[in-house]
Design a protein around this nucleic acid. Structure first.
Lengths: 343, 343
DNA sequence: GCCGGTGATGTGTACGTTCACATCGTTGGG
DNA sequence: CCCAACGATGTGAACGTACACATCACCGGC
C-alpha cells in the first residue's frame, strides 16, 4: 500500500518528467535540470548519463512548467492582416524560421477587418498568451491606437513602415522604393503619371504614396490625387476600367503587383497595349510578376531579409540591448517589359 | 515586518494572480477559479464581484499555469510547406480563425525542404510544445513516414488529400476536380492533352494526376506521362518553352494556377495564342487568375471551407467524438477564357 | 595538517492554476 | 422537528520546472 511504485496498475500514462530521468540516470532532478540548460558545472560523464536516460525515456521538457517558473513564454506574437498576400506571407515565414532557430515560437493572429474592435480583440488574444514581443503586419495606424489603450508593455516591431517610429520599426525604405519607380517613369519621358495606392491606414501604402508625390514634386510635374485601393487585383481592374475612359495619363505606378495585374487586364479590355500605350510599374516583385503579360517592371523588396532582421532586432531588445541599428532594407527596381519610353 | 502588504517598497511588478483577485473580491481563490471557468455553482452576485475585481486589477489568466495543471496546451500544431502559396495560406488563415474562436492557438512550423530530416525536425519542434493535435500541409508522403518514427500520439489531419487515409484526412475531392478540368478539355474536342503536375510526394499532386489519367482513360484517349513540376510559375514557364518546341498537343491541364501562368507566358513567347492555339486549365482559382492574360479557366477550391472543417473535425476528435463524417469538399470548375473549342 | 576555496551535486521552495475533497448554511420531506 | 441532500464556497495538494541555497569532496598553500 505504501509503495506507489508497484507497476501492477496500468495507471494512466504520464509523460516522464525530470524526476523520472533523474531516477534512471541515478542523479538528482536538479542535475537533470542543469543538463537541460547546459550549465557549465556538470561533469561530461554525468551529462552523458543524463542524456542517455533522456533518450531512453523519450523525455521532453514541459514547456508550460518551464514558462510558469521562468515567466518567459518564449512566444512572439504576430498581429497580421492580409497574410494571403505574398509580402506578409514571405515575411512571416522568414520570421518563423528565424524565431524557431532562436528558440522562440510564433503565435499568429489574423485580424479579419481593420475595425478598431477587431484589432483590439486580436491584440487581446495575443496578450492573453503572455507574448514576450509583438510584431505588427497590419494597418498600423489603427493598431497604434489600440496599443495605447492596452498599455502594452512588450517590445514591438512593425514591418515595412516609414521610419517615422524609428524606435519600434524595422523597415524597408518604401519611400525610396516608390521614388525609384516614379523616377523610372519620369526618365522614360512620362509626365502624366497616376498612382493606385493601398489603403490609407496601411503605413506602407502611405509611404509609397509619399515617395511618389515627392519624386513628382522634385521633377516639377503635376501631382494628381492617388486612387485609394485595397491591394487586390480586382480593385486594380475596376479602377483601371474607370480611369482608362478618360486616359489623361500615360503611366501608372501601382501600390503592389496584384493591383498592377488587374490594371493591365483593364488595359487589354480597353484596347490599350502595355507598354506601348500605357506604362505600368508594380511594387513587391511577387514571383509571378515575371510571368505577367507583359512581365512586370516592379520594385523588389527582400521580404525574407526583413523577416530575419525583425527577429534579430526583437531578440536584441529582449536581451536588453538598446540602440540597435535599424537600418532600412533597401529596395531594388526590377525593370521588365511593362514600361517603355513615351512615344 | 510581518505584513508583506505594505506598499512602501516598489517591489518588482508582478502580474496579478487569482489570489490577488480573490483578496479584492473578498472570496477564496477557488471561487475566482470557478468564475473563470464558468462553473454552474456560483451565485451571479459573487460572479459579478469577482468580475469587478478582475477588471480592476487587469487580471489575465496565466496560460502556462493552466496548461501545467490541466496538461492541455490548447495548441494545435501546423506543419506547413509553401505557405506563401495561395492555397495553403488561405487554409491556414481560416484554420487560425476557427481555432481561435474555439479557444485554441496555432503553432505553425515551416519546413524548408522536403528532406526527411527537415520534416522530422519540424515535427519534433511541434511535439516539444505538447500540441494537442496536428495539421499537415506539406508533402504528406514523407511526413507520414516521420510520424511513424516519432510514434506520435495526437490526432492529426491532413489537408487536401485523396481520401486514401480517410481516418485522418479532410479533403477536397482533388481527383474529382482534376476530372472536371480534363473532361472540360475533352468536351471542347481536345484529344492530345498534357499535364503539368506538382511534386510527386505531395498527395494532392498525385490525386490531380490520378484524376487526369482516369478521365483520359475513360474517354479512351492516349495518356502521356505527366511532367513533374514544383508548383511555381517559373517551372511552368521553362517546361512550357521546352514542350512547345514539339507542340504535339493542343491543351494543358496544369496542377495549379501559378504553373498555368508560367505556361501561358511560354506560349506568348513561342508565338502561340491562348486559347486559339492552346487551351490551358489551372487549379486553385487564386484571386489573380481572373486577371491573367487571358483570364484562366481553373478549378476552384474553397480553401476557407477546408480550414473551417479541419478545425471542426479536429475539435470533435479532441472531445472524443468519433466517426465524424469527413465528406469531401466539392471543387468547382470555373470556365474563363483560356480554353476554347478545338478548331 | 588545517583551512579557505572551488567544482559538482543535492534539497527546499516558488511559480499560478485546477482538481479532489471538506465544510458550511439552507431547504425540504418524513 | 430532525436529518439528508444540495448548493455555494473554502482548503490542501499537485502539475514540472528553475532558482537560491546547502552540502560534500577534493585541492593547494601556508
Amino acid at each position: 500500500m505504501s509503495n506507489p511504485e508497484q507497476a501492477s496498475e496500468p495507471e494512466r500514462v504520464r509523460a516522464p518528467n525530470i524526476r523520472d530521468v533523474a531516477r534512471v540516470a541515478g542523479v538528482s532532478y536538479q542535475t537533470v535540470s542543469r543538463a537541460l540548460n547546459d550549465s557549465p558545472s556538470i561533469r561530461p560523464e554525468t551529462l552523458a548519463r543524463v542524456q542517455a536516460a533522456i533518450d531512453e525515456l523519450g523525455y521532453r521538457p514541459n514547456q508550460a512548467a518551464r514558462a510558469l517558473v521562468t515567466s518567459r513564454s518564449r512566444t512572439i506574437g504576430v498581429l497580421a492582416a492580409q497574410t494571403v498576400h505574398y509580402g506578409p506571407a514571405t515575411s512571416i515565414q522568414a520570421i518563423e524560421t528565424a524565431a524557431r532557430e532562436a528558440g522562440y515560437r510564433l503565435s499568429i493572429t489574423n485580424i479579419s477587418s481593420s475595425e478598431y474592435a477587431s484589432i483590439k480583440a486580436g491584440l487581446d488574444h495575443l496578450m492573453a498568451q503572455s507574448i514576450e514581443a509583438l510584431i505588427v503586419i497590419a494597418p498600423q495606424v489603427r493598431v497604434f491606437e489600440a496599443l495605447k489603450d492596452l498599455q502594452l508593455s512588450v517590445p514591438f516591431v512593425t514591418l515595412e513602415a516609414t521610419g517615422l517610429n524609428t524606435a519600434h520599426s524595422l523597415w524597408v525604405d518604401q519611400i525610396q522604393g516608390a521614388r525609384l519607380a516614379t523616377r523610372h517613369l519620369i526618365d522614360l519621358g512620362h509626365t502624366e503619371i497616376m498612382h493606385l495606392s493601398g489603403p490609407q491606414d496601411w503605413i506602407e501604402a502611405e509611404a509609397r504614396m509619399q515617395g511618389f508625390l515627392r519624386e513628382l514634386g522634385d521633377a516639377d510635374l503635376r501631382t494628381r490625387a492617388p486612387i485609394l485601393g485595397d491591394w487586390t487585383a480586382h480593385f486594380g481592374y475596376y479602377a483601371g476600367l474607370e480611369l482608362l475612359r478618360y486616359r489623361d495619363f500615360t503611366a501608372v505606378f501601382c501600390g503592389n503587383d496584384q493591383m498592377a495585374l488587374g490594371f493591365m487586364h483593364a488595359c487589354r479590355e480597353s484596347g490599350l497595349r502595355v507598354p506601348e500605350d500605357i506604362s505600368v510599374v508594380g511594387f513587391d516583385d511577387v514571383p509571378e510578376a515575371a510571368h505577367f503579360a507583359p512581365p512586370l517592371t516592379t520594385v523588389r523588396q527582400n521580404f525574407a531579409e526583413i523577416g530575419r532582421r525583425t527577429i534579430e532586432v526583437l531578440l536584441g531588445e529582449l536581451r536588453g540591448e538598446t540602440g540597435l541599428s535599424h537600418e532600412p532594407v533597401q529596395p531594388e527596381l526590377i525593370v521588365r517589359q511593362s514600361t517603355a519610353r513615351l512615344a
